[in-house]
Design a protein around this nucleic acid. Structure first.
Lengths: 105, 105
DNA sequence: TGCATGTGCAACCATACGGTTGCACATGGT
DNA sequence: ACCATGTGCAACCGTATGGTTGCACATGCA
């Protein structure tokens, strides 16, 4: 499912990773050095982010560099916008109903 | 934490509930009728959404009506936009660097 | 008053999740 | 050739998660 993006972003550590990778690409070891958890834990998080297609991996010799894949962020944003829009239009209908009622009162 | 919104939206059932509540408010029992799970399961989901302040509850006699609280959707959207923006500007910098290089080549 | 219906609470269960440690393998540099 | 360093894989662990069932309580209505 595409919407698994939200599941991937559910964890604060993963949001931090995404946030860092938005600034510059990095390896799992580099990222782990900035966190209070093990390199393997970070690797697992990166795998989850990768499955959600939020990041891309590129091997370079011994190292593996991870970089952001921003399209999925846009997809998530779009879902929020869609739901929001439905809500807003519902509020709009409600508002005009109330206003009509007040005019009658 | 405000960002718990993403954790709340991580579950597909909860996204469905949010989506429905964007159209119209409803009670737990009504929502459960539309889902293949028990009313109690729905109640738990609604509690999670409530803790994330994505929905509001209002008691009306025997019933409890749930309705969307769209501000948090906006907050989540904003986070996505911020990260996205950082990434875009990074790409921009990269692009101009590459172009400069090509001019030198 | 009695009953149907909606809600609240608790116990319980299987599995997913986020973390660890340990070790093998691959690659780069001296 | 050697060793340091990064990665990959697997086993393991405690707790959170999403679900269930059962039952008590509250309210609306005939």
């Amino acid at each position: 499912m595409q919407q698994d993006v939200f599941a991937a972003l559910a964890d604060p550590t993963r949001r931090q990773l995404v946030s860092w990778l938005a600034v510059r690409s990095a390896t799992a070891t580099e990222l782990a050095r900035r966190l209070p958890i093990s390199r393997q834990a970070v690797a697992k998080h990166l795998e989850v982010l990768g499955e959600a297609r939020l990041i891309a991996r590129e091997r370079s010799g011994r190292d593996v560099h991870y970089s952001l894949e921003a399209e999925r962020l846009a997809a998530a944003s779009e879902w929020l916008a869609t739901v929001s829009a439905r809500w807003e239009s519902r509020l709009q209908r409600l508002k005009s109903y109330v206003e009509k009622g007040e005019r009658h009162a």
